[in-house]
Amino acid sequence: MDILFLAHRAPFPPDRGDRIRSYNILKHLSGRARVHLVAFVDDDAAVTDEDRALLGECVVIPRTKSQVRAAAEALATGRPVSLTAFADRRVTAAVNAIVQRHPIDAVYAFSGQMAQYLPADVPLTIMDFVDLDSAKFDAYADDAIGPMRWMMKREARLLGAFERSVARRVTAPLFVSAAEAALLPGSRALENGIDTVRYDPQRSTPVHSAHPLIVFTGQMDYRPNVDAVTWFARSVLPLIPRAHFAIVGRAPTAGVRALAGQDVTVTGEVADVRGWLAAADVVVAPLQLARGVQNKVLEAMAMARPVVASGPAAEGIDHAGTIRIAGDARDYANAITALLNDPAGAAALGHAAREQVIRRYGWTARLTPLDDLLGLHAERQVV
């Protein structure tokens, strides 16, 4: 079987939320079929020989279009910016060439931006929206003012219409959680997993901290993460005496870097996030806007850390009561302080979280539904 895999960001290296998901899906499929990849790449992409060995053809195209140009194209054509930002004739040409060269039996499109490249004559099409982006922009509009509010509302409306039209014509529209899938009729969930061998506290060396350490991990130019750490540093941390807050993740914005001080560390990109997780007395995920399954929460649970998360950050995860949920600043401060004052209880909570992740979120179990969707049952040998 030949599968064409389309991705808005090449899955290499698998070191951030979307790339972790797309990489593990691609790896799963490549063990059962011949997979051809067409993907955009960012500046930090690194495609190794080992990665290419998973694939038949591998076409990666740098994404060079500016947001200003994408917005201008969107306004001129009546399309969502999310689509014009990823509209590229080079991708269209690459897709057409692969379809002509290979007997493509199925297409797996990762992220809604790539739906515009779905070939018309392939019998099986899987559209992995991951999250419902139109709902995200609708939420952004609630906090915006003036022209930006109008732009966010426009994006939500146009993108929502596009998502619904795509869902009606593909074989299976997928989302990262049941809650996300419920937002688009006819969709189903394909949940994220976690590599519990890699994310094992026994395999990691903790960084040193002289004070009780609270850790947040994530891509630090992503707006929900920026808003979360800014709120936490300003509203929650002052309520927790002697604690230190570490913001761990690449590309921190100027606003995030400005949070650094005596009680806050902003690391920027680190070689291995596991050392920070292993050192954490508590991991927090205070996101107010969170779609689907949060990898940062799964990673902390797998590392047997006690987690305090917002309702939205925990919503897509079957945590079975093994993490603490908090709302306002006082809720967070009380939950974190209670864990810091009870190391044995915190350790027990972290252990229970890891056991839950092992039971529920191994990648093999999470991706098995793809075998039925695509008729893939026998492992093939990758050479």
Rank of each mutant, 00 (worst) to 15 (best):
Pro119Val: 05
Val122Cys: 03
Val122Gly: 03
Pro123His: 01
Leu124Ser: 08
Thr125Val: 15
Thr125His: 07
Ile126Phe: 00
Ile126Ser: 04
Ile126Ala: 00
Met127Ser: 14
Asp128Val: 05
Phe129Tyr: 09
Val130Leu: 03
Leu132Asp: 01
Leu132Met: 05
Leu132Trp: 02
Ser134Thr: 12
Ala135Asp: 14
Phe137Asp: 05
Phe137Ser: 04
Asp138Asn: 13
Ala139Phe: 00
Ala139Ser: 12
Ala139Tyr: 00
Tyr140Glu: 08
Ala141Arg: 08
Ala141Val: 10
Asp143Ile: 00
Ala144Pro: 01
Gly146Asn: 08
Met148Cys: 07
Arg149His: 11
Trp150Ile: 15
Met152Asn: 15
Lys153Tyr: 04
Arg154Ala: 08
Arg154Gln: 13
Ala156Lys: 12
Ala156Glu: 09
Arg157Gln: 12
Leu159Ser: 11
Leu159Glu: 09
Leu159Arg: 15
Gly160Ile: 07
Gly160Phe: 08
Ala161Gln: 12
Phe162Asp: 11
Phe162Pro: 02
Glu163Asn: 13
Arg164Ala: 14
Ser165Ile: 07
Val166Asn: 10
Ala167His: 14
Arg168Trp: 09
Ala172Trp: 11
Pro173Tyr: 12
Leu174His: 12
Phe175Met: 10
Val176Ile: 15
Val176Leu: 06
Val176Trp: 02
Ala178Ser: 14
Ala178Gly: 14
Ala181Cys: 11
Leu183Tyr: 08
Leu183Ala: 14
Pro185Ser: 12
Pro185Cys: 11
Ser187Asn: 10
Ser187Glu: 10
Arg188Gly: 15
Leu190His: 05
Glu191Ser: 14
Glu191Ala: 15
Asn192Asp: 09
Asn192Val: 08
Asp195Phe: 04
Thr196Asn: 01
Tyr199Ile: 05
Pro201Thr: 01
Ser204Gln: 03
Ser204Gly: 04
Ser204Ile: 02
Thr205Tyr: 02
Val207Gln: 04
Val207Phe: 06
Val207Pro: 04
His208Arg: 13
Pro212Met: 00
Ile214Gln: 00
Phe216Met: 00
Phe216Trp: 03
Phe216Pro: 03
Phe216His: 13
Arg223Leu: 13
Arg223Val: 01
Arg223Phe: 04
Asn225Lys: 01
Asn225Arg: 02
Asp227His: 09
Val229Met: 03
Trp231Arg: 13
Phe232His: 07
Ser235Met: 11
Ser235Arg: 15
Ser235Gln: 15
Val236Ser: 06
Leu237Cys: 10
Leu237Lys: 08
Pro238Gly: 04
Pro241Val: 01
Ala243Trp: 07
His244Asp: 06
His244Ile: 02
Phe245His: 04
Phe245Trp: 03
Phe245Ser: 05
Ile247Lys: 03
Val248Gly: 04
Gly249Lys: 00
Gly249Ser: 01
Ala251Lys: 12
Thr253Met: 08
Ala254Val: 13
